[in-house]
Structure formats: structure tokens, C-alpha cells
Write a protein that binds this DNA or RNA. Structure first.
Lengths: 236, 236
DNA sequence: GCGCTGCTTCGATGAGCATCGAAGTATTAT
DNA sequence: ATAATACTTCGATGCTCATCGAAGCAGCGC
């Protein structure tokens, strides 16, 4: 007997729970009240749904006084949700012409723990162009750090001894549902995003997982990673 | 606005539809009647569910006379289902001790278009041990064909000019939900499975996606890929 | 100690949807 | 041409589950 995938899929298959899970793709822990507001339901309904998601092992919960903070259980859950976003957008795109309507999500957003969007795809392309990750011609859509790439990131401040202690891959290609091309995930993708925040080049949007680069931050980001100069943020 | 993942997840989240989708992970096209029997429902119910899966772009359908044949829409749908199997088995395994109860599925089975199970994990390990795929120490869980690996497979009869015309990766690691370790997917994984069938080493089970190796076939397979001698098939 | 906040539990309500018998359509074998 | 098979459509039935008002519990500020 094979595992019953309908149980996990059924947890995600409710619009309210899906909305909460997507909100958590921003990588931050959110409270039950915040998730209720995000999903547009009462706290009773939120409580019921969150119990199911925790019991179903898609979320973990931490208590802090009377607050309960919820997070995705791990990167495998995030990958599942990202794959669902990819397949869903592919489905939707066969009916519509353009990508996501929100240009802020399109330009830069958090994909669980790394950067996604136009800027991240541009970053990925620059890593290939500069041969910092391997363009080996045999394995498409896969990322492999080269020797010069390792030197480049070491110079930026990456400590590979620390990154290697994680079980997760250093480099990983993650298919961007908005751009349909790959961006950088894995431990290195996470480091890059943290570095962007630490340097103050960008900050998280308060009510979505969009990321806002400052004009100066965008310029420094483009220079640091050898990106072609990109337009500043879209309208709104 | 981000894509609404609950729609696709909801399609999979019904036990009947999930059963049909899992049956199609065997890689074969199945008729509506076969899928009805597989799921234990009437043909009216099957018809309704299959319409939803086709409209939702998880399945494609081909007519041949009065028969309709259904297949997964592509490898991305198969990957999504495999990831759901992985997460579901991880969830279940936190409650139980052992893996899948059916030893036949555990030893060898079809994972959409490639071999999965103990034999495929052993194959993957042998490819690493013999340095036919890269064990580069930086990227865990990723597969990269080496120069000697390409020579090995060319000698086996792989035509890499043909494999390279596909957009999909030549080599890909696929996490095996039953073994919790990686096996070989991608174009090369598909070639290996086809070769096994073409040589008559194994055949598909009629009513599940288990694969049955003949004793001679198992021996030849082990020899060809330098595997330690494995026990023959489990009971039943 | 009291009142407020965050969250949970209970019970009622109603919408959504899976199921199948009956009847129908298209295809194919005889 | 007729009968059988594969599949679809219609309509009835009943089950599941999301929702929230009310009430309750735990934590915390005053």
C-alpha cells in the first residue's frame, strides 16, 4: 500500500488553509491572529484550521506567553508549496497572457528562505555568466558551485564550513513560478537573502512577501553580483 | 495576488482522485474503466473525477475508438505526486516503525518513468561509488554525470545526442519515499528503466506499479551496474 | 484583583460535493 | 442492422466540513 497523498493534499486544498500556508512562505513566523486576518476569517475558524495543519505536520507552533507563532515545518513543505505554485501558475497561464498582477511580487519576493523574482533570476543568470555556478551543459536546471564561484562567495563573506554543516544543498535551482526560469535556492540562496537584509539593501513588505529594495540598495546589489542595471521598482 | 494553490491541491486531496493519480505514476496510460476499478468506484463517478483532473490539467486524455486513455500531464505533475508521497510517508513514519508494507513496491517499482525502490537506490550508490556520477561533496542530493560515467553509459548503449535533445535533465536525484535516499531520475533514469524492460530483465506488475525482476535478470542487472548481490524478491 | 487580549471549545447552520441508479450517446463486434 | 461495450449526463441522496456566535481558559497589563 502506498502512502495516502490525499490527506496532505487535502490539507492544502482548502482555500483558507492555502492562504495561510502561502503567507508563511514569506519565511516569518506568524501568529494565529495574523493568519486569521490574512485569510479573512474569525479566530475560531483560524484555530480549527491551524490545529489541522499542525497535526498534519505541515506547520510547527511555538508559544510565547499567550501568543502562538506558526511556521512551515521545513524546507520540504516549502518546496511542495512552491511546486504547487509553479503548477498552478502554469495552469493559469494557459488561460491568461501575463504573469502575476502584482509587480512587487514579481520583482523580488521571499521564497521561504531565499530571494525569488526577476532580481533572483537575474542573479542566477549572472552566476552562470560569470561561471560562479556550473553551466555544465549536461544537467539543465541544476546549480553547482564552481571553484571560482566558491572563491567569489568566500570573498563576499560566506563561511563554507558553516554552510556545509547543514544537510541541505549548498546550491539548488528553484523554478520561479513568476519568471518560469530558475533562481538560487539552498544554503547559499538563504545566505544571499540574509546578506541583503543585513546590509539594509532591501526590507520585507509588511503585509505580503514582496521585498522592497531601496534605490541605493538595488544599485549596490546589481554591482556586487554583476547584474545589468535594472529598472527601479514598478508602480505602486 | 499569488496563484491559488488550493485548486490543484484540492484536486489531489480527494481519496478517489488521489488513488487514480497514484495508479498513473506507473507510467502507463490507463482507461477510464481501469481507473474506476483501481479506485473502487462506478464508471459514472470515475467519469466525473477524470473530467475534473483533465480540466485541472493534471491529466491528459487520448481517445481510441470508444476507449479513453489517461496519463499524467507531464513529469512536473509526477514530481509533485512523488513529493507528496515523500512528505506523506515522512508524516506516517513518525508514527510507525517500518516502511511500506508491500515488499514488492519496496524492492522495485516505477516512479513515473524511472526505477525506484531498493534496487534503484543501490544503483544510485553504485554510480557514486564507481564515480560515474559526481560525488562532489558540495551539492548533496544532486546528480552530475562524470566523464567516466558518460563513457560507461555510452558503452551500455546510451546515445547522449538523443538524450540531450530533451529539455529535461540528463541526471536527476529523486528522493525515494520508501528508502529515504536518492535514486536516479531524469532522462538517464528513464533510459535505464527502458533498457531493463527491453532486455527482459524485469516486467511490470499487472495491477500495481511494482516491477518483477526474473532471477536471471536480477543477476544481470547487478552485474551490469556493479551492485552487491541482492536477495531475490520478497515473499508473495 | 480586575479587565483586556489571544486563543480554544462547543454547538448550530448551511453549502459543497461524492456517490450511484437510470437513461443516453458513441463505438465496435457480430 | 443489431447487440454489446465504454463512457457521459441527469437527478436524487446523504455525508463532510467550513463557518461563526457564545462561552470558556490562559496570560498579562494596570
Amino acid at each position: 500500500m502506498e502512502p495516502n497523498i490525499s490527506f496532505v493534499a487535502g490539507l492544502i486544498g482548502d482555500a483558507t488553509r492555502a492562504s495561510m500556508l502561502t503567507a508563511l512562505m514569506g519565511g516569518k513566523a506568524l501568529t494565529a491572529t495574523e493568519l486569521a486576518i490574512e485569510a479573512g476569517i474569525t479566530s475560531q475558524t483560524a484555530s480549527s484550521h491551524l490545529s489541522k495543519l499542525v497535526d498534519g505536520q505541515l506547520l510547527i507552533v511555538r508559544k510565547q506567553g499567550r501568543h502562538k507563532y506558526f511556521q512551515l515545518k521545513g524546507s520540504d513543505v516549502a518546496q511542495l508549496l512552491e511546486m504547487l505554485l509553479n503548477i498552478t501558475s502554469k495552469t493559469t497561464h494557459s488561460k491568461t497572457v501575463t504573469g502575476p498582477s502584482d509587480p512587487r511580487l514579481r520583482q523580488a519576493r521571499v521564497c521561504y528562505d531565499h530571494l525569488a523574482g526577476e532580481l533572483s533570476v537575474a542573479l542566477f543568470n549572472s552566476l552562470i555568466k560569470n561561471e560562479w555556478i556550473g553551466d555544465n551543459g549536461i544537467n539543465d536546471n541544476e546549480a553547482r558551485l564552481t571553484v571560482t564561484g566558491k572563491a567569489f562567495f568566500t570573498e563576499l563573506g560566506v563561511d563554507f564550513n558553516i554552510l556545509s554543516t547543514s544537510k541541505r544543498p549548498i546550491c539548488k535551482a528553484c523554478l520561479d513560478w513568476s519568471e518560469r526560469r530558475s533562481h538560487l535556492a539552498g544554503a547559499l540562496g538563504q545566505w544571499v537573502l540574509n546578506d541583503i537584509f543585513n546590509k539594509g539593501w532591501a526590507s520585507k513588505d509588511l503585509d505580503s512577501r514582496a521585498i522592497h529594495f531601496t534605490p541605493a540598495g538595488l544599485k549596490l546589489f546589481a554591482k556586487k553580483y554583476d547584474l545589468p542595471l535594472l529598472s527601479t521598482q514598478g508602480s505602486q
